[in-house]
């Protein structure tokens, strides 16, 4: 019996939607990688209810630990606990969402399990090879993981969230006694500060509409004055280009692109963004793309469904007004 272990990412017990996409990838891997079951592990405050919830998505069992070691995410104890859970559930594969946590922790798990890792997978082939983007999404590679233990991170935009289906009922606490080194983990340091950006809008990674602003906004004040109301009119999450983030118009975790977040909403509206390949890497799988740019030759128009060549300071507020008018 071998299984696939899903690392259940959650915030205070609320499972991230991306975890459900990771589960879909795990289900697709199950056949080609000859696994019998999919099991889960959740860590940190709220882990028990997250693990419990995931049982209704067809996991045959789930482990959790709310031990003080996991109060705050830290790569070292989390990696050891995930590896411990993998050994206890005879998992030869560990799957996680490619969030900043997933990217940070899974390679450490790979070393502990002597596994090979494929990052950010976007597809599974029948023969067990997986597809993943390289070179800012310009190239898709088909890769094989040539060792018995495997670890993958999953790009959530490429897999639909799993639906509920009957599963197991075994939700049990992970016994930390299985890894004596776990309790030495505090020597690896501690979290001393945390700056969360305001979260009164939908989460960028799973919003159905995203409005993104670029360098053309010119200042943080303009970004707030032009992009915020447009986003709020659509009930959208806000994204930004690297140039906008680097210039301090928007916080770092709004960056969309090769080295930021990857999004694929129903509607993506880019405002004053040129459409550099690194930006496109993070949004070109959106269903409908709207671009507002005053340069008719801006590369963003090569992928936009609807392009409006205009000064954003004139048309973005007008669009905000019109959409608000329709909504009221």
């Amino acid at each position: 019996m071998t299984s696939i272990l899903l690392y259940i990412q959650h915030v205070d017990g609320k499972v991230l939607k991306g975890t459900l996409s990771a589960l879909t990838a795990a289900r697709e891997l199950k056949g080609p990688w000859k696994a019998d079951t999919i099991v889960g592990i959740a860590l940190g405050p709220g882990a028990q209810s997250a693990a419990q919830e995931m049982l209704s998505y067809g996991l045959s069992s789930a482990r959790y630990s709310e031990d003080a070691l996991f109060q705050r995410y830290r790569a070292e104890p989390y990696a050891r606990a995930i590896a411990l859970a993998a050994r206890e559930t005879s998992a030869s594969t560990v799957v996680a969402l490619a969030s900043s946590t997933g990217k940070d922790v899974l390679p450490r798990v790979a070393v502990l399990l002597d596994a090979a890792q494929a990052s950010d997978i976007i597809g599974v082939n029948g023969d067990g090879s997986v597809r993943r983007p390289m070179y800012a999404g310009n190239i898709i590679a088909e890769v094989e993981l040539s060792v018995p233990h495997r670890v993958v991170t999953v790009r959530s935009t490429a897999f639909a969230p799993a639906l509920q289906e009957g599963g197991g009922s075994e939700c049990s606490e992970l016994s930390l006694a299985g890894d004596p080194e776990l309790h030495e983990q505090p020597r690896f340091g501690e979290v001393v500060g945390y700056e969360i950006s305001k979260a009164d809008r939908p989460e960028l990674s799973d919003a159905s509409v995203v409005v993104s602003g670029g360098r053309a906004l010119g200042s943080a004040e303009n970004f707030e004055k032009v992009v915020f109301p447009l986003a709020d009119a659509f009930g959208a999450a806000i994204g930004a280009s690297r140039a906008a983030v680097d210039s301090g118009y928007a916080p770092n975790d709004w960056q969309v692109g090769q080295t930021g977040k990857v999004v694929a909403p129903n509607l993506y509206i880019s405002v004053g963004i040129s459409g550099a390949i690194q930006h496109l890497a993070g949004m070109k799988d959106s269903k409908v793309i709207v671009a507002i740019n005053k340069d008719p030759d801006a590369p963003i128009f090569e992928i936009a469904d609807y392009g409006l060549v205009a000064d954003l300071f004139a048309v973005a507020p007008e669009l905000t007004e019109k959409v608000l008018g329709l909504r009221s």
Binding site: I139, I140, A141, L145, S146, F301, L308, V315, L319, K322
Partner: peptide
């Protein structure tokens, strides 16, 4: 190496849509 690249391909290109001439036209299209 543990990760063996078996082959590379280019993703299918997204085809460009069209230009709209006003906000009104954009809203109607959406």
């Amino acid at each position: 190496v543990k990760v063996r690249v078996r082959g590379l391909s280019t993703p299918s290109a997204r085809k460009a849509g069209r230009k709209v001439s006003s906000v009104q036209e954009l809203v109607e299209a959406l």
